[in-house]
Simulated scan of single mutants.
Amino acid sequence: MNQSNPKRIAIFCSGSGSNAQKIMEHFQENDFGKVVLLLANTPKAYALERAKALNVETFVFSRTDFYQTDAVLEQLRRVEADVLVLAGFLWLVPSNLIAAFPQRIINIHPALLPKFGGKGMYGHHVHEAVKAAAETESGMTIHLIDQEYDKGQVLFQAKCSIAATDTPEDIGAKVLRLEHAHFAPTIEAYLKQM
């Protein structure tokens, strides 16, 4: 790969954006990638503040923008995005984006897929389901996306053990530590093989 031409990354978020921040920081001094845009589906997403603090351009879009127009795709083309990263993004990605970025949309899921995946399985819902199932381990999965929730090719998984006394919040904290440690390096590894 030509290191003078890093891959251009666009991050999608719906909430706080702690994973997005780790990714933006990772690629600030990196030859393989550069975060060029953070997109959020709500103006209240704290991820927008994190992006502004790191001098990353932001774009807020509505459900109509995402599903009924090409507004989001036009923004991605404008910044010449090579790769899309879903970092706590809760909407199913529409087919026009999947077609425009085949095998170039990376998602993170707070469980060991294929367990605890699918529609409605996000955030605390996942950790509550893991607890209710009396699992002895959980973790996170980084994967490419396709037309179904949480079904694409797995790029990386990391596990953590769960104690019987762990609450869903405890499980969530353990999983988030794994996400922070592994998401950006896994994206970088994927960019290197593109």
Rank of each mutant, 00 (worst) to 15 (best):
M1W: 06
N2S: 13
Q3Y: 14
S4L: 15
K7I: 04
R8C: 12
R8H: 10
I11A: 10
I11H: 07
F12K: 03
S16P: 00
S16V: 11
G17S: 08
G17H: 02
S18V: 10
A20G: 15
Q21K: 14
Q21N: 07
K22Y: 08
I23E: 05
I23M: 05
E25R: 04
E25A: 02
E29Y: 09
F32T: 13
G33M: 07
K34G: 04
L37S: 11
L39D: 00
L39P: 03
T42Q: 11
K44Y: 09
Y46H: 14
Y46A: 13
E49L: 12
E49N: 14
R50E: 07
A51C: 08
A53D: 14
A53N: 15
N55A: 14
N55T: 10
V56C: 11
E57Y: 01
E57V: 04
F59S: 13
F61A: 09
S62C: 01
S62W: 07
S62G: 08
T64L: 03
D65V: 09
D65R: 02
F66H: 03
F66N: 00
F66Q: 07
F66K: 07
Y67G: 02
T69R: 09
D70L: 08
D70K: 06
A71W: 00
L73P: 02
E74C: 07
E74I: 06
L76T: 03
L76R: 04
V79T: 07
E80F: 00
D82F: 02
V83D: 06
V83N: 03
L84N: 01
L86F: 03
F89R: 07
F89L: 09
F89T: 04
L90Y: 11
W91M: 13
L92P: 05
P94A: 11
S95C: 01
N96K: 15
N96W: 04
I98R: 15
A99Y: 07
A99W: 00
A100T: 03
F101R: 04
Q103W: 00
R104Q: 14
R104G: 02
I105F: 06
I106H: 00
N107P: 06
P110K: 01
P110T: 05
P110R: 01
L112P: 01
P114H: 02
G117Q: 07
G118D: 11
G123Y: 03
G123F: 06
H125A: 13
H127E: 11
H127L: 10
V130A: 05
V130D: 08
K131C: 06
A133V: 00
E135Q: 14
T136K: 15
E137P: 06
S138W: 08
H143W: 06
H143P: 10
L144F: 12
Q147A: 14
Q147P: 00
Y149K: 03
Y149I: 04
Y149T: 04
Q153V: 12
V154S: 05
F156W: 12
F156H: 15
F156T: 01
A158S: 14
C160F: 08
C160T: 15
S161F: 12
A163E: 15
A163S: 15
A163D: 15
A164C: 08
D166S: 11
D166I: 10
D170W: 10
D170E: 12
I171P: 04
A173G: 02
K174A: 13
V175N: 05
L178C: 11
L178H: 08
L178Q: 12
E179Q: 06
E179L: 09
H180Q: 12
H180D: 11
H180F: 08
F183L: 15
F183W: 07
Y190S: 02
L191T: 07
